Amino acid sequence: MTAPAVPGRVVAEFGTGYLATRVLTAERGYLWCRRPGHARPCPFTPVPDAVADAARAWTAHGSRVVLGAPGPTDLDNRRPDGAGTWRQYRVPAPYSLGHVLGNHAAAPLAWAALPRLLHQVGTVLRRVHTAFAGSPAPGGPPGAARVAGWLAGAPVTPAAGRLRREALARLGGARMRRAGEWCADVAAGGTGERPVLLLGGVSLGSVIPSPGGDACTVLAGEELATGHAAFDLGWTVGELAEFRLLHFTGPAGGAAAEHCATAARALLSGYATAPDPDGPRHGPADTRPDLDAVARSAVLRILAHGVDYAAFVGWRDQLTEYLDVVAGLLDHPMGTIEGPPGAPAGRRTGPGTEEQ
């Protein structure tokens, strides 16, 4: 990891019970300082030395992965298990692609560049997965584990319990069991290929665009895991599908929804066409992502956002709209990529860009 930088003034602060973020000025750009939220069930994952060393090579057209360095401490919120420790990331902007999707008029260059930036994220992910096709990180992705626990009846808050009761009524037992089976498959590392190092699910809230929209920085290291390469891709595809199916709906949202669909296709294209930095003999023979596995992970991502919102923010009636969309996608998961006709209309007032 790089040496800690000296933080400047706070320009933004946001988060949930799962993840807290402070953005500060720095000598060159900004520092994003993040720590586990007060209700987070586990600390950030450690970053193996081999992964930290390899991260210097994980770039694509100027885009890169930053794994973070020890950051400033907050003694009032530090927990004995170390879960309150801050990590800091040097980045070029005070906002993420999650913020851009929530208010794209405020960052028009990044919004226009969204497909290009997601293509670069796909290329970066390919390099990560190729570098560690045999992962040094223990355990499966925490996001899928949280959904699995919730499905099994272990909600962590009354709001999460209420969401589960609503899910039993709206999804039905068969769909709930199907989602659980998909979580179990993710936990087992998938089938048909060697497990790889996962960044743990790349959130749009962790992708920071450059001011000119020509490159981006991917914040990672907090949820390193081992599993099927499709999981990382599906986590991002799921967020784009969530905006498309729940927030960019109706005639007014048509162009924005198509922009999100184009960005999802660009992510998958960037992954499939990324050159193997070690030559074609060293990487897997087929670099095309397993679209069925990507789509299943994307559905789990949408469900996870609803579950996490209820658990770490609170109840909103619009959460039931998430369940209605998830019900259809559990039947037709490729709708996360292809966009099923007649998808239920959502509202912009539902859970949106809060960091998870």
Rank of each mutant, 00 (worst) to 15 (best):
A179H: 02
H104C: 05
L67E: 13
H99T: 09
A160C: 09
E193C: 08
G102V: 10
V124Y: 07
A110K: 09
A113Q: 01
G71Y: 05
L118D: 14
H129Q: 15
P72A: 10
G180I: 04
F132D: 02
A179P: 02
G190N: 13
D185P: 00
Y89R: 03
Q88L: 09
L125Q: 15
A144H: 03
R178N: 06
P138D: 11
R79Q: 10
A152F: 10
L171P: 04
T73G: 08
P155Q: 11
G161Q: 03
R162I: 02
M176P: 06
A152W: 05
R90N: 07
G180C: 04
L114P: 12
V128P: 03
A144Y: 01
A148M: 03
G122W: 07
R146Q: 05
S63T: 04
L125W: 08
D81M: 13
M176Y: 07
R165F: 02
W182L: 12
G173I: 12
R87F: 00
T73L: 07
R146M: 04
T85H: 04
R87G: 01
L67G: 11
S96I: 10
P138Q: 13
A145R: 14
T157N: 07
M176W: 07
G82Y: 01
F132G: 00
T73N: 01
R164S: 04
R87K: 03
L97D: 00
G140C: 06
V66L: 13
V186S: 00
H61K: 12
T130Q: 14
L171C: 08
G62I: 12
A145S: 14
P70S: 05
G102I: 13
S135L: 00
A133F: 06
G189K: 05
Q88D: 14
N77E: 15
Y89M: 06
H104N: 09
G153C: 12
V100P: 07
V66H: 07
G98I: 04
R126F: 14
A159P: 06
A112Q: 13
Y95Q: 09
A145M: 09
V100N: 11
A145C: 05
N77W: 08
G161H: 04
P155K: 11
W182P: 00
A133G: 10
G161C: 06
D74V: 00
H99Y: 14
A169L: 09
L151C: 06
A154L: 15
V147D: 00
Y95D: 06
G62Q: 02
L109M: 11
G82K: 08
D76G: 07
P115M: 12
R127W: 00
P72M: 02
G149R: 15
L114K: 14
L171E: 01
R87W: 06
D74F: 01
A169M: 10
H119K: 07
T157G: 10
G140E: 00
G62L: 08
H119A: 12
P108R: 06
A174R: 14
W150S: 02
W150G: 00
V128L: 08
R90W: 00
F132A: 05
R177P: 01
A110I: 07
P94R: 13
T191R: 15
G149C: 03
P195M: 08
G180P: 10
E181Q: 14
G62M: 08
A131N: 04
P72G: 06
